[in-house]
Simulated assay, not measured.
Amino acid sequence: MSSKALRIHLAPGTVVTVRSSMKAFMGYSLTPDLLSGLRHSGSAALTSMFIASAKSITEMVHPTSRDASSSTKPYFVAYPHQYHFMLDEPEKCQQEKAFLVIVIPVAAWNRRARDAIRKTWGGETVVLGKVVSRFFLLGRVHVDNGSTLPQEELRRESQEHHDLLQADFLDSYYNLTLKTMVMLEWLTARCPGASYAMKTDSDMFVNVHNLVNMLLTAPKHAYMTGRVVRYGAVLREPTSKWFLPEEVFSESHYPPYAMGLGYVFSMDLSQKLIGASRHVEAICIEDVYLGLCLRYLGINLTDPPDYNLFSTWLPFASTRCHWAHVITTILENSEQLLDAWRDFQSMQSC
């Protein structure tokens, strides 16, 4: 291989080419040491973590299921497509007779985030008399030498906690739509008896009590709520992580959608959204894509009883009472979640 180029094979048909002439790659400055380290690294996990934590990609070819011009390919994802589970909990949802199923997409390498959630809000399994089941959804990361993140470590974690779902798609930021659609397929197949499901990110505080309390009086069909965005402008600045060119989406504003930080839906929507995906081309912005599918279905999003229940920011001077009045709040890291949970648990009245 030329010393001026490094080809990283992320998945079959998906290759990132890093050239020494590039100034940056995936949000990192491309120094000679970094380029050399990526090329010669003997640590598959280290290289995988570098790729999995990427926020932008300089040059990437995404496999797609439909024809697209070379300029628009990176904005579409390979769905519909038959993905398979490498780790699964096929019976747990029905055995527990879950009322609510919470699924947290998380990078395979991020054990710290999973453990923090298990120790905090993810440990709440019966709330207001309703069973809550919680699972982590992972993808797979491939690197140049064909190896992956240590799969045996994930198997041991799965055997210990019985809460990992891992499918054989590339685990990357640009495949969050795939993760979401695979989640919907899994919910349809494994949790037909549940009433509701929630998708939330791994850096969120979740007040499960408030969530279940809201759902006790929520519609049971054709229902989705969260931080609902209406008249959201399509970003045309190429440097934005959420950039979409007009060739991909010609409208100036998106249809209403629930922000991907955390949204809740009635279980019947899983199958409906999968059906709509056969008619709505899958783009890489997952929450917007679900909004497009809902528009195709003619289903309106429901605003939560209080707009601030799904908080997109953490107050500068957050108090213990803040945690009592929300359903979700975005955090900076797992340590902050542990601190917030201690505050929440020690709260006596608000």
Results as ranks from 00 to 15, higher is better:
70 S>F: 02
70 S>D: 05
71 S>Q: 07
71 S>V: 02
72 T>D: 10
72 T>A: 11
72 T>C: 04
72 T>F: 00
73 K>A: 04
73 K>L: 06
74 P>K: 01
75 Y>M: 02
76 F>S: 01
76 F>L: 06
77 V>W: 01
77 V>L: 05
79 Y>D: 09
80 P>K: 12
80 P>G: 08
81 H>V: 02
81 H>T: 04
81 H>Q: 11
82 Q>W: 00
82 Q>K: 09
82 Q>C: 06
83 Y>T: 10
83 Y>M: 05
84 H>M: 03
87 L>V: 01
88 D>V: 04
88 D>N: 13
88 D>K: 11
89 E>M: 13
90 P>C: 10
91 E>F: 07
94 Q>N: 12
94 Q>S: 14
95 Q>R: 15
96 E>T: 14
96 E>N: 15
96 E>Y: 05
98 A>G: 12
101 V>W: 06
101 V>D: 04
101 V>Y: 06
101 V>S: 13
102 I>H: 00
103 V>Q: 08
103 V>W: 07
103 V>Y: 08
104 I>R: 09
106 V>W: 04
106 V>E: 07
106 V>P: 06
107 A>N: 12
107 A>C: 04
108 A>P: 08
109 W>F: 15
110 N>Q: 07
110 N>S: 13
110 N>G: 00
111 R>L: 11
112 R>I: 05
113 A>L: 08
115 D>Y: 07
115 D>A: 13
116 A>F: 02
116 A>S: 12
117 I>Q: 06
117 I>A: 12
117 I>R: 04
118 R>P: 08
118 R>L: 06
118 R>F: 07
118 R>K: 05
119 K>D: 12
119 K>F: 02
120 T>C: 14
121 W>T: 02
121 W>N: 03
121 W>A: 01
122 G>Q: 04
123 G>N: 03
123 G>F: 02
123 G>R: 04
124 E>V: 03
125 T>Q: 13
125 T>C: 11
125 T>S: 14
125 T>P: 00
126 V>Q: 11
126 V>T: 14
127 V>K: 02
128 L>N: 12
128 L>A: 12
130 K>S: 09
131 V>I: 11
131 V>Y: 03
131 V>Q: 15
131 V>E: 10
132 V>E: 10
134 R>W: 00
134 R>E: 02
135 F>K: 08
136 F>K: 05
136 F>Y: 08
137 L>V: 02
138 L>P: 05
138 L>S: 07
138 L>R: 09
138 L>Y: 09
139 G>Q: 01
139 G>L: 01
139 G>M: 00
140 R>K: 13
140 R>E: 13
141 V>T: 15
141 V>I: 15
142 H>S: 13
142 H>G: 15
142 H>I: 02
144 D>N: 13
144 D>G: 14
144 D>W: 09
144 D>R: 14
